[in-house]
Each structure stands twice: as C-alpha cells, then as structure tokens.
Write a protein that binds this DNA or RNA. Structure first.
Lengths: 206, 206
DNA sequence: ACATTTTTTAACCAGTTGGTTAAATATTTT
DNA sequence: AAAATATTTAACCAACTGGTTAAAAAATGT
C-alpha cells in the first residue's frame, strides 16, 4: 500500500469519492474523467490504473448511490411496525437522507430516464424491496375503519413524492416562493413534520 | 419559402421540433447536433444555417418548454376562484400536462441543477407567477375554519409534488410496484382523482 | 428566363474526450 | 539492498463534437 494504513485515505478510495461527487452532480454525460482525476488530486493515467474505464467507474459509483437508499426503503416496506409508526419512521429517515444527499434523487431520475437499459440491467440490484406487506397493511387498516379508504399504491407513491420532490425541485421552489438561502433551508427542514401531518390528516377516517 | 406554405412543415420548424425532442430527452450535455439533424431529416450544415449554435438552439427550445408550463401555474396562482375549485382545476390541468409531456419536469429539474446560472439568467422568464394570492386565500380559509390549519407554502409544494413526481419517477415506480406498461399507464391516469381526494381529505377541518 | 433562396455535399478544422503507452521516479514491502 | 508496487510525466491516438466553408444543385420567386 502506498498511502496511509487508513483505507479511507487510499488512492483508490480518493478516486472513488471524487468520481462519486462528479457523477452525482453531472451524470454520465456531463462527467469528465479529467475533472475526476483533478478532484482526486491525481492524474488521469492513475484513474485507468485502478478503474479500467469510465463505464466501470460509473457503474461502481451508481451502484453505491442506489445501494444507500435501498435498505431504507426495504426497512420501511418489509418490517411490521404499526402503520402510523412506520409512516413516521419512513418520512423521518427519508427526508433526512435526501436532505443530506439532495443529489441522489436527481441523479437516479435523470440517469434512469436517459439510459434506462443500463440502469435496470447493470445498476439496480436484482432484489428490490417488495411493497406487498405495506400494501396489505394499509388494506387491513382500511377494513378496520382506522384510516380513510385510499388506494394503497397511491398512498405509497404520495408519501415518496412528498418526501423527495421538494428537494429535487429546490431551485425552482426557491425562486417561486421568493426565498433566500437561509429561508429555503429552514423550509426544507420543516418538511419532516409537515409531510407527516399532511399524510396523517389525509388518512383520518370520516 | 422552400417547402409547403404550412409553417408547421417549414424546415426551421422541423429542426426546432427535432431539437425539442432531443434536448428534452437528453439535456444539453447528452444532445448531439448530428442527431438533431438526422431526426429533422436534414444535414448538419443546415442546422447552423437556421440556428447559429447549439447554445442558441438550446435556449430557444428550453424557453419554449418552460413557456408552456408557466401560464398554467400562473392561472392557478393568480386567479380568484374558490379554493377547492382552484385546487381541482390545478391538479386536473397539471396532471394532464405532465401526462402528455412527461419529460418536461425531468428536463427542468436536471438542467436547472446542472447549469443553474444559465437557466435562471437566460431561460426562465423574468416575470414568474407570484404565489401571494393563493397563500392568502389559504390563510383566509383557515381563519374561517373551513380547512385544517396548514402552512400555505407547504400545501402548495405538496400539491405540486403529488402532481409531478410520480411521472418523473415512473420507471422506478413501475419496477417497485411490479407493473407492466399498461398497468403503469392506468395507474398514472388514476392520479388526477387520487391526488385531488388525497389533498382535499388532508384539508378537512377537525 | 433570371435572380434569389434553400438545401445538399463533402471536405475540413480545432478542441475535447476517453484511453494507452513507456519510461522515470517514488514508495512500500520483503 | 533488492523487489514489488504505486505514482508521475508526458507524449500520443482515435473518435467524436461543434462549427465552418465553398461550391454545386434544387427549389422558389419574379
């Protein structure tokens, strides 16, 4: 090993981190190998020494990005907490994840739309979280009269939409609502509670 | 004029339409002038004969894309229908717009995040819709006890999120919910009613 | 028929990009 | 000290990209 013993400081890791930044912000088309090398503080030759090609590097980075979100979704969909507790935890974890990594959803969305084949075949894990448990749980709550009748799939999509979209559309929201940097930040901070209240209010039975 | 009298068939328009398709699906970085020329059924030289540069062509296309969404948002924000009527109309128009042009929001989001300066300075119109009327209207409804207390800005963002996001995340939704092409289509068709019900249910006073 | 405009052809240019190579140098391992 | 590994340097390539040019050809207008 050439560098320190700490594997976080290894050249391979430094390259990966730099590639992570650049790919996340610019996508496959916008990312340049030279910029990745510069940000990693090394030269282009060394890039190909560790990661053969842009394609390979992109795949590893994209898999890592996806891999971070999957367990959160899985825990939400596949555990068996009571519904309200579950929703609370999901919104809380999810809003926090996106708040810390706001580029994740933009990356996933635009890359998946630009190169759907590559994404589905080589980036997405084969075992995706299955929503069945959650969907049946919602149906049971409806049958018991504890929540308003609602199509479970739409409820799921609604929750995810409310969590993710405002971060994705942040620049637009900022401009339309006439907010400065501080204001948009606290606005997005508020969403954790606000989304939860909005969803729970909508689910109240008649 | 070289072509038919119908200006929709003019070469200039054919180029614009082709550029519209390509830029919308691939963004500035991913779009290639050669592909635009091919899709327009003409050659590269003619591209620069009508539109000097990629930059110019991109600007015109991007402005047109934005320009189509702005009047809908403006009508929603600045007219003075009763709130429920307004929300109904907004969701209806907006879901239909996005259903017909699902690439619009992806384009706006990813381009705005990749090149925010260009977007704000040269693409966005100077006069954006102002949300004040809507925000005050919501406050008035709350004061009159006709809807649940809710922060008006969050309500606005929630509505837009629920309308747009499912179309943006369509491939992901499809995979996670295990739908085929027909199923995802009817699922998205349902959203017009579903979003309206979800929002109105959440606004019911206690 | 003539002039004007539109479109094609095709070669060309300069800049960028992903990627390679080989030799030199530094660093670590043994 | 010797061997193995990691890193730099720097030149280089082929492919691609946006853009230009000039001349010919086709279409259109008068």
């Amino acid at each position: 090993m050439a560098e320190a013993n700490n594997p976080n400081d290894s050249t391979e890791q430094k390259i990966f981190d730099a590639a992570h930044e650049v790919f996340m912000q610019k996508g496959m088309d916008g990312a340049k190998m030279q910029e990745i090398a510069d940000r990693a503080g090394i030269n282009k030759a060394l890039l190909h020494y560790y990661y053969r090609s842009k394609e390979k590097l992109y795949e590893m980075v994209a898999r890592a990005i996806i891999g971070r979100a999957v367990p959160i979704i899985r825990e939400f969909l596949e555990t068996d907490y009571p519904l309200e507790e579950k929703i609370k935890r999901f919104i809380s974890f999810y809003v926090e994840l996106i708040a810390r990594n706001p580029f994740i959803p933009i990356f996933v969305i635009s890359e998946m739309n630009k190169h759907p084949d590559r994404f589905i075949d080589t980036i997405l894990p084969k075992e995706l979280p299955k929503p069945d448990i959650f969907l049946r749980q919602v149906e049971a709550e409806i049958a018991a009269g504890r929540i308003r009748p609602v199509k479970p799939q739409h409820l799921l999509v609604n929750m995810v939409s409310l969590c993710i979209f405002p971060f994705v559309a942040k620049p637009m929201v900022r401009i339309v609502l006439g907010m400065n940097a501080q204001e948009i930040k606290s606005f997005l901070d508020e969403r954790k509670e606000e989304v939860l209240q909005f969803v729970m209010a909508s689910l109240r039975p008649n």
